[in-house]
Design a protein around this nucleic acid. Structure first.
Length: 452
RNA sequence: UCCUGAGUAGCUCAGCGGCAGAGCGGGUGACUGUUAAUCACUAGGUCGUAGGUUCGAACCCUACCUCAGGAGCCA
């Protein structure tokens, strides 16, 4: 393998016999030579190459247009121009793959709406290249965070037969012909779906290995058309035995801080670039998240604060109702001006598995809200008491048969345990400042869209 | 799914009842150690679709389609 442009630009000294391979971002011609700027995706910066008339391959310079794949052999030397430290004085140029005038990416900026229509080419832009480099590093940081803390990475099923995990509409998985509805003849001899959460299975692993996490694709068939929802996304779900809600919140907040810190440490080039073109306050926000403690409010306190805010919301604030987006945004963006964790929600607006508090009215649930995105983490302490869980299930109309294995966890060696779900793409939006979830995943799946 | 807004050249947009426009990009040429280079010339259009109003519609009206933003659902 030849050196990447990232490696070449990090050189300490002049280097002979270098090979640079990449895609032409721009070409500027002089009478007797051309400037060729190459990008290979290894970093944000381009490598400027000087291609003199007469070197081997120069006869094809006209085809080395924006988008073309090119190999440059030459010498890495200090640049005579001011905009870059190093450049390559080419001794040979090879056109690997041309790109004719129909190549849709121009040197100038394009709208995200247009780039979504050419999602197969947009990673070649500075913005999407940055986002997808960050995506890789952030995914690795997620694993590092957990592995450093003794968590085990577990793989929960993608295909599930549980049809009411309480997290929205599900995609059906079937081998039956269209129109057939005898599920006893289906592949699994019953209805099957794509998972909307690995939590319940995660609990079985946590009550054996102690601290576990999942990090995998998740599917929701909701007809959601927003900047924050995708039908296929990646979710991180830790589950911890011998853990209560307070410790759960500690972990979620520590993780958000850790991931923000990793962005600052590992992607400084992208922080600067995204701060310039996408979100002016990006660095400031990341440093703020890393350095300042998060706020923590009970649902009851949050409602009281909202009610005496004097702010006129489109939807009134009422105890017992879910907080609206505008309420959450006001809390995190204007009242606290920092990430805020809201906990202990009324039991009637939360799922059956959340632990009933001693007041008999609220459950040990928590949502971590961040400025600009809203809810980024949702979690809870789980109901570990057998009789209480059974009562909850009855109340929610769930059959104990279908969830016998889940109830067994309370029947045999039950322990307090807790966990949360962190939307990976939402975290990516938060650390990059990119305002639309469709721009932080290579190929977004949303209602009506399954292209590429 | 609901609400709001927008669809005009490859891209970004102006034009808002009377000849279809600009910048960028593309092509051709000139020029220059250039930096989203510069200069000149040039090609490029079913004004989202279908109806309607009008002497005349890109422009006004209706429906539909598509996209975007907001809401709900949530991560």
């Amino acid at each position: 393998m030849s050196a990447t442009i990232k490696e070449l630009l990090a050189s300490e000294a002049v280097r002979d016999g270098v090979v640079a391979q990449g895609w032409v971002r721009t070409r500027r011609d002089s009478k007797a030579f051309s400037f060729l700027e190459l990008n290979d995706g290894s970093c944000l910066k381009n490598l400027q190459c000087i291609v003199d008339e007469g070197i081997p391959g120069y006869e094809h310079i006209a085809q080395c247009t924006t988008g073309a794949a090119v190999r440059i052999d030459g010498r890495l030397v200090a640049s005579r121009g001011g905009a870059q430290k190093w450049e390559v004085q080419a001794t040979a140029v090879t056109l690997l793959g041309g790109a004719d005038e129909s190549f849709p990416l121009q040197k100038k900026g394009h709208s995200p709406e247009f780039l979504r229509t050419i999602a197969h080419l947009r990673p070649r832009t500075s913005l999407y290249g940055s986002v997808f480099r960050v995506r890789s590093r952030l995914a690795y940081a997620v694993h590092r965070f957990f592995q450093e803390r003794g968590f085990f990475y577990v793989h929960t099923p993608i295909i599930t037969a549980s049809d009411c995990e309480g997290a929205g509409e599900m995609f059906r998985v079937t081998t039956l012909a269209p129109g057939a509805d005898d599920f006893t003849k289906d592949f699994f001899a019953k209805q099957a779906f794509l998972t909307v959460s690995g939590q319940l299975e995660g609990e079985t692993m946590a009550t054996a290995l102690g601290k576990i996490y999942t990090f995998g694709p998740t599917f929701r068939a909701e007809n959601s058309n927003t900047t924050r929802h995708a039908a296929e996304f990646w979710m991180i779900e830790p589950e911890m035995a011998f853990c209560d809600l307070a410790q759960d919140m500690d972990m979620a907040e520590a993780q958000v801080k850790y991931l923000a810190q990793s962005m600052l440490d590992e992607s400084p080039e992208e922080v600067e670039f995204l701060g310039k073109f996408v979100d002016k306050g990006l660095r400031e926000r990341l440093e703020f998240v890393v350095n300042r403690p998060f706020e923590r409010l009970s649902y009851t306190e949050a409602v009281a604060i909202l009610q005496r805010s004097g702010k006129s919301f489109e939807y009134p604030v009422a105890y017992g109702q879910n907080l609206q987006s505008e309420h959450e945004r006001w809390l995190t963006e204007e009242h606290c001006r920092c990430p805020v964790t809201v906990f202990n929600y009324p039991k009637d607006i939360k799922p059956f598995y959340m632990r009933l508090n001693d007041d008999g009215q609220t459950v040990a649930a928590m949502d971590l809200l961040v400025p600009g995105i809203g809810e980024i983490v949702g979690g809870s302490q789980r109901e570990e008491r057998l009789d209480q869980l059974q009562a909850n299930m009855a109340q929610h109309g769930l059959s104990e048969e279908a969830y016998g294995w889940y109830v067994d966890l309370r029947r045999y060696g039950s322990v307090p345990h807790a966990g949360y779900g962190l939307g990976f793409e939402r975290m990516l939006m938060f650390v990059t400042g990119v305002p639309n979830i469709r721009d932080v995943i290579p190929f977004a799946r949303t209602p009506g869209h399954c292209e590429f």
